[in-house]
């Protein structure tokens, strides 16, 4: 039973990770990050169930709170970049380099 949830979590995480790596649109990358976070949340909850305690559930709550805060900041940044550069491509925002 637990194995299936973990497998699903792995799949979700991998999809998110690949999305972060291959997609250029900042919004999509951002959604993929959320997908990864939720994959870990699923893993946390699964392990909490497996071990019969609440540690994983508390961790999942923590991740949700952090993710919510991150969404606020991240979206604000993306919007302001889009406003100045008329583009949401992460590859275009490459000024900070050597």
């Amino acid at each position: 039973m637990t194995d299936h949830y973990i497998t699903l979590s792995l799949l979700l995480f991998t999809i998110g990770a690949v999305g972060v790596l291959v997609r250029r649109n900042a919004i999509v990358v951002f959604m993929c990050v959320e997908l990864m976070l939720n994959a870990t949340n699923l893993a946390f909850v699964t392990f909490a169930r497996a071990h019969g305690n609440l540690d994983g559930q508390i961790a999942a709550f923590l991740v949700m709170v952090v993710a919510a805060a991150e969404v606020v900041v991240g979206l604000a940044i993306i919007v302001s970049i889009f406003r100045t550069r008329r583009s949401a491509s992460v590859d275009d925002a490459s000024l900070l380099k050597y």
Binding site: V20, L21, R24, V90, D91, A93, S94, L95, L96, Y98
Partner: peptide
């Protein structure tokens, strides 16, 4: 070494992964 700092976020994340 500083050539590694390309400015492309996706290559950074690949490094992290």
């Amino acid at each position: 070494l500083r050539r590694a700092q390309t400015g492309f976020v996706r290559s950074y994340s690949l490094t992290i992964f």
